[in-house]
Amino acid sequence: MSGRDDAHDHGLQHDLQRMHDLARENIGRRRTLRLLFSVSGAALIGACGGGSASSGESTSTTTPAPTPTPTPTPTATGSCVADPEETNGPYPADGSNSRNGTVVNVLDDSGIVRGDIRSSFGSSTATASGLYTTLTITLVNVNGGCAPLAGYAIYIWHCDINGKYSLYDLPAENYLRGLGVTDANGQLTFTTIFAGCYDGRYPHIHFEVYPSLARATAYGNRILCSQFAMPAATCSTVYATSAYASSRNNFAGESISSDNVFGDNSAAQQAAMTIAMTGDITNGFTGTVTVGVAI
């Protein structure tokens, strides 16, 4: 037999002693390996280090934490003009006046928050006739780099094709009035008809700005009341149609510069208050306008 096989013939005591010796040898090997790893690792780190050997001090390089990138604040393109405060006129239905001894306030009516303002809501559902028009309003902060203002409420109202106002001239109707809230881009869009023109005024749309929908319940909470001017060239086109015959005669003697509301504003303000409009009498019109407020 080989020497390895002979080891099994020396009895239990011999085997136990042999197992003890082997265990000690294994422990020694593990300790030796750890020592060798520690020494070689230290040597490797020393060889790769970037510190000066003559300084006697170890050096370390700390990677700076990345600087958080701020979330950009959306801004409107171009410059913006603060819209002037203007009268809300005799037909606002915002709680500021009365008709036949009763305060008229459509702002607290269910249904006033809507995008399409062509029809009445409530007891009447009549729809105002006239050329289809959409109006997108962008609200910006003139004190904040023209940044869009989200979450603000805007109330608009205007006359029909014959220059009549709902709730006053037409007490059974409340059409051509609506309230909306600006989105993340400071915008909201109303669907309406092209406003008519009545004697003594340049064609216009009234509006009021409120700090929130919750506050848009009465005129006392508004932060701005002003008016939009309809573009003269489009007015000439629209009022040439038979449906707007009465507006055509009233518009003939009006201009934005001679108007008793728009006339005393600067040229820049008049331009900012005038709706930019595209379209035609067949397909309707699309208007855009920017309202500047100081927040």
Rank of each mutant, 00 (worst) to 15 (best):
R114A: 07
R114W: 10
R114H: 09
D116A: 06
D116Q: 04
I117V: 13
R118M: 12
R118A: 11
R118Q: 15
R118K: 15
R118T: 15
S119N: 15
S119G: 08
S119P: 11
S120M: 00
S120P: 04
S120F: 02
S120N: 00
F121C: 00
F121A: 04
F121I: 12
F121N: 05
G122I: 05
G122V: 02
S123T: 15
S124H: 13
S124A: 14
S124T: 15
S124P: 10
T125A: 14
T125P: 11
A126C: 00
A126E: 12
T127H: 02
T127K: 11
T127F: 03
T127V: 11
A128V: 09
A128D: 10
S129V: 12
G130E: 03
G130T: 02
G130Q: 03
G130K: 02
G130R: 01
Y132E: 14
Y132V: 11
T133I: 00
T133A: 04
T133E: 13
T134G: 12
T134F: 13
L135Y: 03
L135S: 00
L135E: 02
L135H: 03
T136Y: 08
T136D: 07
T136Q: 14
I137S: 00
I137W: 03
T138Q: 15
N141F: 08
N141G: 12
N141S: 15
N141L: 07
N141E: 09
N141Q: 08
N141D: 15
V142Q: 09
V142H: 10
V142I: 14
V142M: 09
N143E: 14
N143H: 12
N143G: 12
G144P: 03
G145Y: 07
C146Y: 10
A147D: 01
A147E: 07
P148C: 04
L149Q: 13
L149F: 01
L149K: 13
A150Y: 06
A150H: 05
A150G: 07
A150C: 06
A150R: 06
G151Y: 02
G151Q: 03
G151E: 05
G151R: 02
G151V: 04
G151L: 04
Y152F: 14
Y152E: 09
Y152M: 09
A153I: 01
I154L: 14
I154N: 01
I154P: 05
I154A: 11
I154R: 03
Y155K: 01
I156R: 07
I156Y: 06
I156W: 05
I156F: 07
I156K: 07
W157G: 01
W157H: 12
W157F: 13
W157P: 00
W157L: 04
H158W: 11
H158R: 11
C159K: 00
C159Q: 04
C159W: 00
C159M: 01
D160N: 15
D160T: 05
